[in-house]
Design a protein around this nucleic acid. Structure first.
Lengths: 70, 70
DNA sequence: TCTTAATGGGGTAATTCGGGGA
DNA sequence: TCTGTCCGAATTACCCCATTAA
């Protein structure tokens, strides 16, 4: 038995969820990702997922924390 | 922080656990396995289990290490 | 053995992808 | 320059019910 401080359990958001938060079209979010303004993780099928903490920070200007660091 | 019962060489994840990591439906993970994008191990009842190291690598793009190699 | 949640298979609706043009 | 929209194709989500896992 071992105890691990889990490395990365980051909540991810879908393109439409991010788009809703910014009141923007999902396609615009895709462009932000392609231009490097927003980092993204890809599903095995090629769809993008976005880090919630990064999105929140961009929305509020306040650095966010992950649940597993709290 | 997580507690792992390690004595095995490879930690296995359930479909729902993998789905949560990718922010995807469990059925989608099943499709990845069927199409060969993700390798899977079957329980004797036919349910799929996935290698954590493989999932982590696909998520981050960084090769992971097993606890018994560290 | 019993209960409950999760998974599998199949089918269909919704979302996202990429490119291109307004 | 930035965003919204149209298109076809691909991927993913949600619905059912039977079986398996815990």
């Amino acid at each position: 038995m071992s105890v691990t401080h889990s490395s990365d359990s980051e909540t991810l958001l879908t393109p439409s969820e991010v788009a809703t938060l910014f009141r923007v079209d999902p396609k615009t979010v895709t462009r932000w990702a392609k231009s490097g303004k927003l980092s993204s993780i890809r599903t095995l099928g090629g769809h993008r997922r976005y880090r919630e903490s990064e999105v929140r920070e961009l929305l509020t200007g306040v650095p966010q924390q992950r649940a597993d660091e709290r």
